[in-house]
Amino acid sequence: MNYRVQDILRPALGVLIAMTILTGLVYPLAVTGLAQVLFPRQANGSVITRNGTAVGSTLIGQPFDDPRYFWSRPSATSPFPYNAGASSGSNLGPTNPALAEAVKTRIQALCQADPDNHDPVPVDLVTTSASGLDPDISAAAALFQVHRVARARDLPKQQVRDLVARFTEPRQFGILGEPRVNVLALNMALDTFATTPR
């Protein structure tokens, strides 16, 4: 076996080009074609449209701080929360004083909006998510906010609680992940609910 330099370089270049065409163009384009034909809604971001305009994605959270809405989790994206063009976590370490400080501020905001609620605050409602775009809160975090939302909208608490129950998604197949509530879907339902004549 006597190898010259070009005996190694030529296959190296050739295989790199072949693989670039196959795995860099043919493969992703094939997946794109199949996805666009078979699952166009998911492939294009699971966008929700109302009266012809796109009003959000079922998978991407939105920020809320109006007492009339259920609030999403805090988000660390910049320059504004839930910036879906620049996902990011806070990367605050567990012993960083800035973390405890931020959590304290968030608890105060929740208390201010709902002064007679003295329940312990569910942890997910006062901590930022990994993506900054978490569409969900836990069932506990939704129930924690029922009192405030019901009062702000002048609705019976039970009605709001029923709505939360209806929008609580169980673990996938009963096992995987955690039970959760999609905040945008819940708030949209609240809006239609409130405008529907009773």
Binding site: S90, L92, L99, D124, T127, T128, S129, D134, G177, R180
Partner: peptide, 13 residues
């Protein structure tokens, strides 16, 4: 109804 634990930097789902 509550995932609990250290949820800073984690997703609810």
């Amino acid at each position: 109804i509550n995932p609990g634990g250290n949820m800073e930097g984690k997703e609810v789902r």
